[in-house]
Nucleic acid binder design. Sequence first.
DNA 1: TCTGGGGTCCTAGGACCC
DNA 2: TCTGGGGTCCTAGGACCC
Length: 418
Amino acid sequence: MDAFYASVELLRYPDLRGSAVVIGGGRDASPQLNSDGTRRYAKLRHYAGRGVITTCTYEARALGAHSGMGVMKAAVLAPDAVLLPVDFDEYRKYSRLFKAAARSVAPILEDRGIDEIYLDITELPGAQEDAGRAVGVALRLAVFEATGLTCSVGITPNKLLSKICSDLDKPNGLTLLDAAEIPARIWPLPAKKINGIGPKATEKLAGFNIHTIGDLAAAEPQFLLGHFGKSYGAWLHEAANGRDERPVVTFSEPKSISRETTFDRDLHAVRDRAALTPIFTELCIKLAGDLSRKGYASKTIGIKLRFDDFKIVTRDITLPAHTMDAKAIRHAAGACLKRVDLSRRLRLLGVRAGALVKLADLPAKPVQTGSIEAALSLFEGSDDPSSAHFQWDANLLASPHPARVESVEPPAHETALK
DNA sequence: TCTGGGGTCCTAGGACCC
DNA sequence: TCTGGGGTCCTAGGACCC
């Protein structure tokens, strides 16, 4: 989707069409209603805070703003640009609408986040020959009719090339590409246009005088393997040559669910404990709510800290049984926090639930909260909370497999087989 | 002007088991 | 008392993406 969040906002505030508009910042950027019924929008120049731009209109981009940029920095470049707060509920609504419209054209759809999808149109009637363009036209029409929003489409032999091509003619673009055109149209592009080559890899490649995808394609595979590792090196070579066999995946289970927040000001774990504790607990409650709503239980609870120097530290712990209970999550996360050196001030705190299992697939009833608390009290009472190693007392825990606890020695024949 | 929130995948070492 | 090879799980960090 083209400038997705900003475009959704323009549907709501059509008077902003044609203006430089920035979405982000958070908090009090909502438009106010004047007495005459007109709207008064917040200007970038009045912003004070730590937010970043999530999306901005093409007019704002022309002034130098881009997503990821701090709003304070953008205010210097475009002080008169309009600032709007993010409204994820609204974007999710339009996300569902555009995906449903796309599915009506091509049912094999891979979800790549709120504003991006892959479609497998191989088996679509008449998708061979020159009908690719017809599919692209139908797709954009269906999306526009359902949402009033434009999107950009790449139609190629695989996901890697489609991703690159969808970006070549933004906004409202349609780009078709045949494998034979790779040298002429793909190789001149910067290497970072490949999905999977980020800032670090771009920098490292530049050090070897590899700047374009063509440079990368011309590099000896052995050289790439030697400098980028077996897996990534081999992938770089394949990607540069436009080869990608990944299928369009229509469904996948989530691996983790998390909540995090950046504080208005940096907080010290001890001195600002009174402010920190409720934030920490709130994150755990929200995470438990997310798990419950989505129907998952987690066996690994972790925390993420970002210090004032932007260094990130993570800690996690695997529980004896899956849980979705806020108290159990809070206790586990608290135990993780005790394993971190907290002398620096904190900028961000996050809580994560991993090792997820669908509630329906849970082997037995989730362990009761009380038992997990009893187990975790072992951590909190530990003489050495910084120690990375803890001993669980299995007897304190309710087992999700009560029957198996009773098993004793394996039968003699089984022992013999070993 | 310091840089959000929610994810995935990969690597790597140590524990532990066979 | 000195060395194997394979496999899984746990934990921490990092690159990358939307």
